[in-house]
Structures are given as C-alpha cells and as structure tokens.
Simulated assay, not measured.
Amino acid sequence: MQAVLQYPKIAVIQPKGCLNAANALEFERDLTTGLATNDISILVVDLAAVESLDSAGLMALLSAHKLALSLGRSFRLCSVAPSIKIIFELTQLDRVFEILENEIDFSTI
C-alpha cells in the first residue's frame, strides 16, 4: 500500500490509491508506527499518489496529527493533489495540517 522512506530524523510515508474506510485502520496503524519510532522527529505523509480521500482517511490523518502533538513530534503533509487539497480546504483542515508543496520542501527542514 505504501512506501516508507527514511531521512535523518524524518520518516516519509507514501500511501497510494484510495484512503478510505476499507484501509483507514491499516493506514492509521502505519502512521502510529512511524510516529512511535524513537529516532523520528518529523513524519511526512506524501500524498502525491493518493487518488481519493474520504472521512475515514481524514480521521486517520487527524488521529496521527494528535498523536504527533502529544509526543512532541512534527506531522506534515506534502504533494497534495488539487482534487485532494480541496477536501482539506472545505473542511478547513488546511489550517490544522502543515502542507508542503512537494517533497523537496521538507529537505530543508
């Protein structure tokens, strides 16, 4: 379903396809595992290959964001397609998540 890339203190999760009720629990588990890794200070979710996102997918992202805050870690999204970005704007979650334009943006973090 997704690839996990490792950079110093940064983990990148790259989900593919649909983030919906059918796979939201697995996705949330992957996010939680990424955040629970001791040597990670930033978790980035690269949404470039995500085709659709429903409320269950949004809840998985929100849950991971909340966990990151409680652990004192950073949680960011990147490469959000316009069709997905509109969902964040309509729900005003673009004000909650830090959304980077692309993967290159976080290399300077």
Rank of each mutant, 00 (worst) to 15 (best):
H65E: 09
Q2G: 13
S70N: 13
I84T: 11
S41Q: 14
T108K: 13
N102M: 04
I86W: 00
R95T: 15
Q92W: 00
P8W: 04
L100G: 07
P82T: 12
A3V: 04
V4P: 00
I87P: 03
S55D: 05
A22V: 11
M1R: 05
L69K: 15
L35W: 07
D46F: 03
C18E: 14
L61R: 02
G34H: 11
V12C: 08
S74I: 11
C18Q: 12
V80R: 09
D30V: 03
Q14R: 13
T32A: 10
A11L: 12
R73T: 07
I87E: 02
L5M: 06
L69R: 15
N102L: 04
A64Q: 06
N38D: 15
L53V: 06
A22S: 15
E51C: 01
I104D: 11
L43M: 07
R29P: 00
A49E: 12
T37L: 13
L5S: 11
D46E: 10
L25P: 00
K85H: 15
L47I: 03
E28A: 12
D54L: 06
G34K: 09
S79H: 08
L19M: 09
I99T: 09
A60W: 06
L93Y: 09
A48W: 01
F27Y: 13
K16I: 05
N20C: 11
S63A: 12
T108W: 01
A56E: 06
F27M: 02
I104E: 15
T108L: 12
A22F: 09
D46A: 03
E51M: 03
S70L: 10
L53M: 11
A64C: 07
V44P: 04
I40F: 02
A22N: 14
L25H: 05
T37D: 14
E26R: 01
L67P: 01
S83D: 13
I99V: 14
P82Y: 02
A21Q: 12
E101H: 12
L58T: 07
P82N: 14
L58H: 04
A56C: 09
M1P: 06
L90P: 00
Y7N: 02
F27A: 02
S107E: 15
E101Q: 13
L67M: 14
F27G: 01
L93V: 06
T91G: 08
L100Q: 10
D46S: 04
G72T: 10
I13F: 02
D46L: 03
V45Y: 03
S74L: 07
N20D: 15
L90I: 10
Q6C: 00
P15N: 06
L69E: 15
C78Y: 12
Q6G: 00
L69I: 07
G34L: 08
T33M: 04
S41M: 04
L53I: 09
L62G: 12
A81Q: 15
S79N: 13
S41K: 12
L43R: 04
S52R: 12
S55V: 11
A36K: 14
I99Y: 10
L35I: 08
S41N: 13
K66S: 15
N38A: 14
E103F: 05
V4K: 08
G57Y: 05
T91N: 07
P82I: 05
I86F: 00
S107D: 06
L58R: 05
A64P: 08
C78G: 11
A68P: 11
I40R: 08
L35M: 09
